[in-house]
Amino acid sequence: MEFTEEQILRYSRHILLQDVGVEGQERISSGKVLVIGAGGLGAPVALYLAAAGVGTIGIIDGDVVDLSNLQRQIIHFTPDVDSPKVLSAKEKINLLNPDVKVITYQTLFTSENALEIIKDYDFIVDGTDNFPVKFLINDACVMAGKAFSHGGILRFDGQTFTHTPGNACYRCLFNAPPPPNAVPTCSQAGVLGAIAGMLGTIQAAETLKYLTGVGDLLTNRLLSFNAKTMNFRTVNIHRSEKCPVCGAHPTVTELVDYEQATCEIKRH
């Protein structure tokens, strides 16, 4: 890959980093990342990856922008209300960095399309708001041997870890989705907008670390934080023999679409 003078200037703060350099930037610029969900987490992830010059960013989301999204989904602006989220996101990415190729999927991520979509990507970011899709992303990535970043936020809390093949997966931690209503949904719970940015930027940093090979990923470690105390905590986790998808005797051998009431508060 030959960088133009303009690109060398644009990415100079990466290139200056000893651990990244021109080579690292080349890896970023030829990287392909899928962001699932163009919401609270997907918004900062997509913006930072675009700014970093990730070669191809895929964005999948079936929703349109709602006024209540703007409190945290910073890739969408007031005039974007009622526009498809993927198109609003693509527009901002193109404005921020025309080097990035954006592929949009204005649809839900389901057991039907999951493997077909992820196969083209190097790294997947879970920026979704519900457990059925979180489990689907995990299972699809484990089955396809893909690395991904898991992220979840609630009220003042955030939690994330990174999966790479052979390391702990989401089902190693949690066997199956909680029963609907066991975990408070957003409509009951709410979330401090900036928490989405805190967690999303961690996910974006993990993505860039994965692409460049710099540092130690959050594999086999679950990072949690609480914004009220600003305490960050990392718990060591590990691959479970009994994991239903990556364990010794997997019981989940094909993708499942779990049922759960959606989390979004709709204005209709």
């Binding site: 609630l154 939690q159 957003c186 979330v191 979004e264």
Partner: peptide, 12 residues
């Protein structure tokens, strides 16, 4: 002992 809680959000 570590209690690891389900945390759902992202888009919401």
């Amino acid at each position: 002992v570590d209690f690891l809680y389900f945390m759902g959000g992202g888009s919401f």
